[in-house]
Nucleic acid binder design. Structure first.
Lengths: 185, 185
DNA sequence: CCGAACTTTCACGTAAACGGCAATGTTGCG
DNA sequence: CGCAACATTGCCGTTTACGTGAAAGTTCGG
């Protein structure tokens, strides 16, 4: 078997093709997302190869989810992730050195951003749920009609009438109402 | 006041601009959606003006929701609504005339399609919920860090240590661990 | 150190989903 | 009937989010 050339061996960093595969996207897309300011790879190799760490992958996965699942545009995603990119990296080092109150501020900011993201997602969920509810209402109405029809077909004229009344004028009875009772099976 | 020319007076049908306004879209979009086979206006005027009824509006609203809220592509929406377009109109008349078993079949089909739509929507909701969950997990972790930090800042060294242990190695302690206790305010 | 496989940037191409004209026809109040 | 306001089809332009090479450099096992 020809061994496929995998990771840069020693480091825990991944090259673009591997992260792309992991998140189910193409290298082109990942580069484009970077171009649009959605992320910056953790590092570059000697020969300027993009190198991604686990947080990058996490982020990319999130981006992909926002696009494919939530249907956000890249611009909206950029909004959502705001300057998280610039800050995160810029502050990661800052984080290790400076005083606790600074670190606290950073942590609070991050939590706030996450919660904002949750808000957006839940708003979207709410709208989808509304659509589900509406559609379910339609289903119920159709089922009621079905019930009425089956009653009309199988049962007595009285039962059919009762069902008709229950639905009121929904079917718009153009022709004569009384069933011909010919097709029961 | 110059009276804006509104509906085609007598009929309950609306012209493209009005339905577009009602659903928050442009006439161009509505026409495009029609061009893509997502719907067919209920009627045309003498001079070939598109005329929409309430079910059209309902449908258009649904389409808009699927695009804006759910982020579906027009192609996907077309899939979702399938031949509903062709059938609905073709069967509406059929519905009024033919025998009950035929009508029953139609109703069942419709209910099935609605339930399929609900499936799609709920799948999407599920994915979004997963994203929410993940993000919430992140928030919790950040809050834990915040708690640890505040404890370290305000409390005794013992408490701080306890908090550090609780989080294990998450912050990557590059510098010396013991707090310098200089900035408490 | 060589070559296959991968990567880089640059550039152009494209499908989807409209926006925006133009040229022409339609409605309908006054 | 006249005319402003709207509609129709046709066509071209635009934005978004990539796809698809081209030309050149990088990695790395053998």
């Amino acid at each position: 078997m020809t061994e496929t050339k995998t990771t840069p061996a020693t480091t825990g960093l991944l090259r673009i093709q591997e992260v792309a595969a992991q998140i189910g996207a193409t290298p082109r897309s990942v580069r484009y997302w970077e171009e649009q300011g959605l992320l910056t790879p953790a590092a570059r190799s000697d020969g300027d190869y993009r190198l991604y760490d686990t947080t990058d992958v996490e982020r990319l996965r999130f981006i992909k989810g926002l696009r494919d699942d939530a249907g956000f545009s890249l611009a909206e995603i950029a909004q959502l992730l705001e300057d998280e990119v610039a800050r995160e990296r810029g502050h990661e080092a800052y984080h290790a050195t400076t005083d606790p109150s600074e670190r606290l501020q950073i942590l609070r900011d991050r939590a706030a951003r996450y919660e904002h993201q949750i808000q957006m997602l839940q708003t979207k969920i709410g709208r989808l749920q509304t659509m589900v509810d509406e559609t379910e209402a339609r289903v119920t109405r159709e089922k009621a009609k079905i019930a009425a029809l089956t009653a009309e077909m199988a049962g007595s004229a009285g039962a059919a009438l009762k069902a008709e009344i229950a639905l009121k004028a929904e079917i718009a009875p153009k022709a004569g109402a009384t069933p011909t009772r010919e097709a029961v099976g």
